[in-house]
Design a protein around this nucleic acid. Structure first.
Length: 672
DNA sequence: GTCATGCCTG
DNA sequence: CAGGCATGAC
């Protein structure tokens, strides 16, 4: 829409209509042109002031007018009031041509013959003023004539009249500006011509305005039609807005005094431009909506295809490798798992086709690699594999390895990147999940002790599985994968060792890995700490940081972990003292008669405390340390050193030197 | 003052 | 297991 109107069409009434009403009814796509329109520049302030500001650039002309007015029309109150009322601009103008003022005040103009062009200007100004001499009355009576029809113009008129009454300058102001640009554009035109031209142009402008409004209305109707066809909700949403917009149009029409008799034929060029813009807008909208639909369709189709593909892969893997893979892997490939995973994926993350796509290719790779590495992994893990005697096995349905990490399954790494909120859900579940003990660990074989129903575990495992793959983008090595209890990597790649510092710094650099960094300690961490106690009774904070790489350490977390070990020691020493006293009470004479075996009551008590699930093979070294500790207590008590308030400290000193190295397997964030 | 540790208590 | 408190080392 080309609203570039000729400058001479400017008129206060038309302009006020345009500038005040158009922006409210015009659609956004048209606003740009509106702002490009010269008229749009007058969106603020009164037309008079705007015109004045515009014409101020033509200082000479204004100065002429000012000179003339102050000399012939408002000679009485010329001077300081002029300066004060016309604002600093006029002051500047006066400063620019002081000679004129001087000449008017001191001597007749004839004394200083003006140049021809100045004479011509003066003549035109005189004509204008002469015309205005009659109109000032009407202008001064304007309050009763026009102001009842146009509120805005009335305001401006009132303002003008006020100023007029004070200085009788408003008409001149308007004519100043008008004349200013008229002089620039039509140096030789007469006043009558000017007036006639102005009226005609005013009419034209009004016609154009009206035609534009009509087109706007049509366009809005078109908009409504388009949206109502494709978006039933849109019309509901837009109904109120459309009504209000139409109301605005109606008001603006009224406010602009565009009466039906003023309707002339629409300007052809304007109409053509409007139509073009309308077509452009329509095609743009159609295109936009088409691309949106295409986007949605693509998303849906891609998601569906990926889901189907994954399902097929899983089905094939589970059916073809059923006899080859380990039971643990079968667990991970069970249909329940698939269903659970798929369902959760769909229900919790319907928009993750991209993530799924990214992870899809990796999924089969990881699955294969996990199968290939199974034997190696278990070989590596043999040092910690618990082959519990049948006596101590609480439940041994299958005589397989007892270590929880022996069932660490790479299938859990099937890449699927859950969104952030899901990770938070996972985090919450893992922190306050249904299992507060280790028997509920995911991927735990059925032979493992479980304190909760499998149905619960299944969903829990499904959640855990999804959390596992969060870090899959970083490959095996960087899988913190912990999410607390979800440790399933462990032995997947035992040859890859990463210090906790490296891991944590990596995690800090990587926002995705940060999702797996625990803000707090979980029951899994507690379990792990208890198992670590079998190796170290006095772990340093560095050791803790090394062996809890998935924990975001701060002062509080470190203190908590230290406190845990302090409590472990407390229980440990209490048991030691208790059994030492018991031995003494039982009449044991020789400390060598006191031994600690896996069958002893002391060990069972300790094992019950630190290895409640009994799924961890307590190292022999711990038995030795326990025996030494018991001897220390026996000796101390026998020597009645317990009368000393700090008699245990000597024992602590001895025991703290008996810490052994913690297996590297514990360093993996998701050892358990 | 801070930190680690131990003891006591709930 | 955690909180509070006391103690001792730095």
């Amino acid at each position: 829409m080309n609203l570039s109107l000729p400058d001479q069409t400017m008129h206060s009434s038309s302009e006020s209509c345009l500038e005040d009403d158009k922006p409210e009814v015009i659609l956004p796509c048209f606003r740009r042109n509106m702002h490009e329109d010269p008229l749009a520049a007058y969106s603020n302030g009164s037309i008079i002031s705007q015109l004045l500001r515009k014409t101020i650039h033509n200082k000479r002309a204004i100065d002429d007018n000012h000179f003339y007015l102050s000399n012939s029309v408002a000679a009485a109150d010329s001077g300081q009031e002029d300066e004060s009322s016309v604002s600093s601009k006029d002051s500047t103008i006066e400063a620019v041509s002081p000679s004129d003022h001087v000449s008017t005040g001191v001597s007749p103009e004839g004394d200083h013959p003006l140049p021809d062009h100045l004479k011509a200007k003066r003549a035109r100004v005189e004509n204008i003023i002469r015309v205005m001499a009659g109109s000032p009355n009407s202008r001064q009576h304007c309050d009763g004539e026009r102001c009842d029809t146009d509120a805005r113009e009335m305001r401006e008129a009132r303002e003008s009249c006020r100023e007029n009454k004070r200085k009788q300058r408003l008409p001149q102001h308007q004519e100043h500006s008008t004349m200013g640009w008229q002089m620039n554009r039509k140096p030789g035109s007469s006043c009558n011509d000017n007036c006639n031209t102005k009226e005609e142009e005013c009419h034209k402008l009004k016609e154009q305005l009206h035609s534009m409004q009509r087109l706007l209305r049509q366009l809005q109707e078109k908009f409504l039609q388009v949206y109502s066809q494709e978006d039933p909700e849109f019309i509901v949403r837009e109904a109120a807005g459309a009504v209000s917009e139409h109301d605005i149009i109606g008001n603006s029409t009224d406010a602009c005094y565009i009466s039906p008799e003023e309707h002339l034929e629409t300007n052809n060029s304007t109409a053509t431009a409007n139509c073009n813009d309308r077509i452009k807008a329509d095609s743009y909208l159609t295109h936009q909506r088409e691309s949106q639909n295409l986007q949605e369709t693509l998303k849906q189709e891609l998601s569906k295809a990926v889901n189907d593909c994954i399902d097929r892969v899983f089905k094939k893997v589970s059916s073809s490798t059923d006899m080859d893979i380990s039971p643990q892997q079968r667990v991970c490939s069970t249909p329940e798992m698939q269903i659970s995973l798929g369902a959760d994926r769909k229900s919790l993350a319907p928009d993750h086709s991209q993530a799924e796509e990214m992870s899809k290719s990796r999924s089969s790779e990881l699955c294969e690699s996990s199968e290939a590495q199974t034997s190696q992994d278990q070989t590596e893990a043999l040092s910690l594999v618990v082959r519990k005697p049948p006596v101590t096995q609480v439940s041994s349905v299958t005589p397989t390895v007892k270590r929880p990490y022996a069932v660490h399954q790479t299938p859990f790494q099937f890449s699927y990147t859950p969104p952030l909120h899901e990770s938070h859900i996972l985090e919450h579940l893992l922190k306050y999940g249904p299992h507060s003990n280790f028997g509920a660990l995911p991927c735990m074989p059925p032979s493992m002790d479980r304190t909760s129903p499998d149905s619960v575990d299944l969903s829990w495992d499904a959640v855990a599985m999804r959390s596992k793959v969060t870090s899959s983008h970083f490959g095996h090595h960087h899988r913190p994968s912990s999410m607390g209890a979800v440790g399933v990597d462990g032995l997947c790649l035992p040859h890859v060792k990463m210090e906790s510092g490296e891991l944590q710094s990596l995690a800090e650099r990587n926002p995705y890995m940060s999702l797996n960094i625990q803000e707090g300690l979980t029951p899994s961490h507690l379990k792990k700490a208890k198992l670590m106690f079998f190796y170290t009774r006095y772990p340093s904070s560095n050791v803790l940081k090394t062996f809890f790489p998935d924990v975001k350490f701060n002062r509080c977390i470190t203190s908590q972990l230290i406190k845990w070990f302090s409590n472990f020691r407390e229980f440990y020493y209490i048991q030691m003292e208790k059994f030492a006293r018991q031995a003494i009470a039982e009449g044991v004479r020789d400390v060598k008669d006191i031994t600690v075996s896996r069958d002893s009551e002391l060990f069972r008590a300790l094992n019950m405390h630190y290895n409640k699930a009994n799924d961890f093979h307590v190292p022999d070294r711990f038995l030795e340390v326990a025996e030494i500790t018991l001897h220390e207590f026996y000796n101390a008590i026998s020597a009645t050193k317990d009368s000393d308030s700090s008699w245990k400290k000597a024992i602590y000193k001895v025991i703290c030197k008996l810490d052994s190295e913690i297996p590297e397997e514990f360093k993996t964030s998701s050892y358990l």
